[in-house]
Simulated scan of single mutants.
Amino acid sequence: MSVRIDITGLRREKVAVAPSPLAELGMALHVLSEPGHHPGLQGWVTGVTARLDAHLADRMSEADFLWRTSFSDLFMPFAGIPGRDTLPGATLADDLDLLDKLTDDQFVDAGLEFVCSPGYAYDSRRPGPLADAEMRRRALELAAARGPRQLRFARRLLADPPGVRAWLRQFLEDCDAAFFAETWSRLCHPLASDARHKSELLRHKGLAEALGAVSPSLTLDGVGGAAGRIVVDKLIEGRTHTGDGGLLLVPTSLGRPHLTVLHRFGWQPVIQYPVSAAEPAAPLTVEQLALRMTALAHPVRMRLCRNLARSANTTGELAQMLGMTPPEISRHLAVLKKAGLLTTRRRGRYVLHQLDVAVVARLGSDFLEGLLR
Rank of each mutant, 00 (worst) to 15 (best):
D132K: 06
A133Q: 14
A133W: 15
A133L: 12
A133G: 13
A133Y: 11
E134G: 13
E134A: 15
E134K: 15
E134L: 13
E134Q: 14
E134I: 05
E134H: 14
E134M: 14
M135F: 11
M135S: 14
M135N: 10
M135H: 14
M135V: 08
R136L: 05
R136I: 02
R136M: 05
R136C: 12
R136D: 08
R136H: 10
R136P: 05
R137M: 06
R137T: 07
R137I: 00
R137S: 13
R137V: 00
R137Y: 05
R138V: 01
R138C: 03
R138D: 10
R138L: 04
A139C: 07
A139W: 06
A139N: 04
A139F: 11
L140C: 12
L140D: 06
L140T: 02
L140S: 08
L140F: 11
L140K: 09
L140Q: 10
E141C: 06
E141A: 12
E141R: 06
E141K: 07
E141N: 07
L142W: 02
L142A: 03
L142T: 00
A143T: 01
A143D: 10
A143E: 07
A144R: 14
A144W: 04
A144S: 13
A144D: 06
A145M: 06
A145W: 01
A145C: 09
A145T: 01
A145G: 14
A145F: 01
R146M: 05
R146S: 03
R146Y: 04
R146L: 01
R146T: 00
R146D: 02
G147N: 02
G147R: 11
G147V: 00
G147K: 06
P148C: 11
P148I: 11
R149K: 15
R149V: 06
R149H: 15
R149N: 13
R149L: 12
Q150L: 00
Q150P: 04
Q150W: 01
Q150S: 03
L151C: 10
L151H: 15
L151W: 07
L151Y: 05
L151F: 09
L151M: 10
R152Y: 12
F153K: 02
F153N: 02
A154F: 05
A154E: 00
A154I: 02
A154C: 10
R155L: 11
R155I: 04
R155S: 12
R155A: 08
R155G: 05
R156H: 12
R156D: 07
R156M: 11
R156K: 15
R156P: 03
L157I: 00
L157W: 02
L158W: 09
L158V: 09
L158I: 12
A159H: 07
A159Y: 03
D160W: 09
D160K: 14
D160P: 14
D160M: 15
P161F: 10
P161V: 05
P161C: 05
P161W: 07
P162G: 10
P162D: 09
P162Y: 03
P162Q: 10
G163Q: 12
G163N: 08
G163P: 05
G163I: 01
V164K: 08
V164Q: 15
V164S: 07
V164E: 15
V164F: 08
R165D: 08
R165E: 09
R165G: 07
R165K: 12
A166G: 00
A166S: 09
A166E: 08
W167L: 00
W167M: 01
W167H: 01
W167N: 00
W167R: 01
W167Y: 08
W167I: 00
